[in-house]
Amino acid sequence: MPNLRSVGPTRLPPDRALRRALPSSAGARQSVLVQINREENPNGDVVGFVRDVPGYPRYKYAGDGAKGEHHLVIKGVTLQDDGEYQCQVGPTSNASAIWAAANLTVLVSPGSISIGGLGDGEKLEVKAGQRLTLDCVVRDARPAPSVTWYRSGLRLDSALHEEKVFRSSQGRRWSVRSSLRLIPSSEDDERQYSCRALHPALEGSPTSLVASVVLSVLHPPRLPEILGYRTGEVLMEGERRLLTCMADSGNPRSVVEWKRHGRPTGMVQDDPGWKMTLTPSGGYFYDHQEGRHILNMTQEVTATRQEDSAVYECRVYSKLLMLPLSANVTLTVHYGTLYGPLTVAPGLVFSITCITSLV
């Protein structure tokens, strides 16, 4: 059994020179043989005993052979140079044969990355509560790449996704499929999910290999809320109030409507392209708060005796709802009426009667 001196694996990008020191224990009069075991020829290609390495123009020996230095230099490393290299020293009358091996892995950066075959940054429509699997595929790398996932720039736990490595259609290369399983909620609407390729050839690179999608999560709106007045609050005649209907828009975007005693006073539909839109009447508007999809629609009210007991209702319509969601308030207005003469002569006694809405 020959003595074995193991040498760790070497990783090198293509087109780089490799200088590997072979065992210095070879004597000056001993023969040194280099053998390469490649993937397509596991039995090995013999480079030879001669130091100029005939048949391998990019290979040469370096070092002083008289001192037992036998270094193998490869210029312009290519993927074909990937494999195991053995230095074998023949036996002599007073020494047995020895050999050592070194593995050379030529780094090939991934060729592409994509999520589910979608374009980078493309929107993906899903329903809230429905299971979703995002498949990120990184192709044609050596050694096999790996993947990390992000949600809106925050790294996700690796336990949330599963990787499967498979052989590439291009020789000596590998691809990986990373599957991220989700149950999207309304909080995932408009959120970006991205995957990033991890590979030794990309380390230290100023650029990264990333693919992303933006989720469009279909979900109904929540119950609206009316701000600016509470039922039971007393308004004095002539007082002005702004009633604001605040509603979660949902996805698809909702329609908001104000009604007074069941009759529409104005309507507005959420438009993500605008931050604020004024209706033609000028009295109703909504404020599209980015990232929250909140609709604010305001109804201006002046307290008059006609507004006493008036019912104002805010309704929210959505394609995902069979019936609209609503909230309402009932106004209470206190007012008074003075009865008496319009003019009186000096020194006369007169009376004035005040009739109010108070019972």
Results as ranks from 00 to 15, higher is better:
158 S>V: 15
155 R>F: 06
237 E>Y: 10
245 C>N: 04
168 S>D: 00
229 Y>W: 15
224 P>Q: 12
240 R>F: 12
153 G>Y: 07
200 P>I: 10
185 S>D: 12
218 L>V: 12
173 R>S: 05
155 R>N: 06
185 S>R: 09
194 S>Y: 03
222 R>Y: 11
246 M>Y: 10
241 R>M: 10
153 G>V: 00
159 A>M: 15
205 S>I: 02
203 E>K: 07
153 G>S: 03
205 S>D: 06
160 L>M: 14
247 A>V: 03
219 H>Y: 12
202 L>P: 06
164 K>P: 04
216 S>W: 07
205 S>C: 04
234 V>Q: 11
237 E>L: 09
197 A>S: 08
155 R>Q: 13
212 S>V: 01
236 M>K: 13
185 S>A: 06
195 C>D: 01
234 V>D: 10
244 T>V: 10
182 L>Y: 07
178 S>P: 01
211 A>D: 03
166 F>S: 03
220 P>K: 09
246 M>F: 12
244 T>C: 04
228 G>R: 14
172 R>D: 05
197 A>Q: 05
159 A>F: 15
193 Y>L: 02
247 A>H: 04
186 S>K: 09
151 R>W: 02
229 Y>K: 13
200 P>K: 12
231 T>I: 14
235 L>R: 08
213 V>Y: 03
230 R>E: 14
224 P>G: 10
168 S>K: 00
240 R>G: 11
245 C>M: 08
159 A>R: 15
160 L>P: 09
193 Y>F: 13
168 S>Q: 00
170 Q>I: 02
150 Y>Q: 02
244 T>M: 05
208 S>R: 06
173 R>C: 06
223 L>Q: 10
192 Q>W: 00
195 C>S: 01
201 A>V: 04
209 L>Y: 06
185 S>Y: 07
164 K>Y: 05
246 M>L: 15
250 G>A: 07
